[in-house]
Design a protein around this nucleic acid. Sequence first.
RNA 1: GCCGGGGUGGCCUAGUGGGUUAGGGCGCCAGACUCAUAAUCUGGAAGUCGCGGGUUCGAGCCCCGCCCCCGGCACCA
Length: 540
Amino acid sequence: MEIPVDKPILVTSALPYVNGECHIGHLRTYVPADLYVRMLRKMCYNVRFICGSDTHGTPIVLSAEAQGITPKAVVKRYHEHFRQVFKALNVDFDYYGQTDSESNHRRTEEIVKKLIENGYVYKKITKQAYCNTCGRFLPDRYVEGKCPYCGAIARGDECDQSCGKHLEPGEIIEPKCKICGNDAVFKDQEQFFFLLSAFAEFLASYLDTLGGTLNARNYAREWVKKELRDWCITRNLDWGVKFPGRDDLVVYVWVDAPIGYISFTEELLKGNEDISWDRYWKDDAAVIVHFIGTDIIYHHCIFWPAMLKGAGYSLPDAVVASGMVKINGETFSKSRGNVVWTTEFLKRFHPDTLRYYIISQSSHTKELDFSWNSFAMRVNNELVGVLGNLVHRVLTFAHKNFAMVPEGDIEEEIFVAISKRRDEAIRAVEEYEFKKFVDAVMSLADFGNRAFHRQEPWHLIKKGEEGKARCGTVIKDVLQLLKAVCILLEPVMPEKMQEMWHLIGMESDVHSVKLDELLVPIESGQALVKPKKLFRRIEL
RNA sequence: GCCGGGGUGGCCUAGUGGGUUAGGGCGCCAGACUCAUAAUCUGGAAGUCGCGGGUUCGAGCCCCGCCCCCGGCACCA
């Protein structure tokens, strides 16, 4: 998507559901979003980046009960955990909130009231499974019984193992509570529904204008082409945002979760005199980009825009959906131990190597198959072999023979090479092709190795003053390349590139350096220290 | 079943307004270099671009049929 230069941009990253620890699957969304934001800033856009914890819903309530603590305590614990993980990985949100905040309660109530006012919410009696033993109503996924069509064991809402038919509430035979295993009964319950069916036409045309990745639009179109069923937006729970006027009902978690995007914007901009939150969410004065995983496309491309439209809010401009992560070809599974926890990973390896791997291993919308072997290969071949080695060899050589950035002019071909890769990198980011982005930049380092080797400075240095002067030019050319690599790779590996920035004699903060610095010749005379190794080989 | 994505050398993969010898990476083989983290550089072998038809002077890219793989099929965070 081409980004309008004159508008501020709001980038959001999917809200982690805080009932468990962060695994590397989560990062597939956050790391590219962070890269995107850092790169846009280098391109001088006005960007704000927000996220927060998704705190409501049944799984958190159950998780709390299992641990004998309150939902609030569960939320607090994992909210803190995610904050720390993001900090460790340098996923640098301008604001990280949580959906149980007062302002999110308020904003959710306001939006639900508005939907009611506009005639998009209606009441309906439904059959709801109730477990007498647990003393609670059961969401469909916690009900198990026999399929009335084929007789196989089925979930409350769908015959998921056998015939695949959708089951209406109350249809399932011999319902049992999946939590305690005892019999469940169906009770009549008053629930509220969102008139999603009224938005079919709107959504069809909206999806045609939506930016972001193709997988998001295609997936959503499929639903719009079929019939859109109205959506039950209330639950019989205590934990959550109360449905207006009903103390016994909370809104479904997928109502208040995305509204977090709005309330976090409000919280971020509170007291900001230059711009207020409603410029983003009411006046259509900003570009809104959501980074999510393919598993929640439905909610972001169907429910969410319909809700916003129905309540009179601005619509998202782009939805960028990342593919799922697998481990050694298998789906994540906590029970089978097929999972890689982020904190465990970070005990062993530098966060930037993980960021690099996630970005470079596969195209953003495709599945990423993690393996320790492929991780080690990327680090050893690319970060150590190509980039780390180039930095180390040229700086060691320069330090020994010059001890500073040598005099001399930079060859024109260097600037040509940099400009070419810069353009490729910008195009890649605009297309959400983050692998292409990193590949384009790394090819500059590759270019550097070839140039250095071809000109054999280790021979030149032995050929008197003239040789030394030419040698200086070779080094300076490569340093210019490294400067460019550093700037362009900062969005991928912020910490390592800051280290490298200092190694090549730069004193500023590479995080705030803009793209126009790419073609500014590196200055001669700056002291060069004996380099330390930027990356270390991984032996498995 | 329906919808979407995909099937390109041992592995991963680029490549749609159809047009020079199908591009890159990993791995492999040979050689070079020695400034450098056994890193680097040069060269090489290896592909009937899922199958069968068709359109065209010409198709990985277009059309028809078929096979296979992956994901989704809703209130589940």
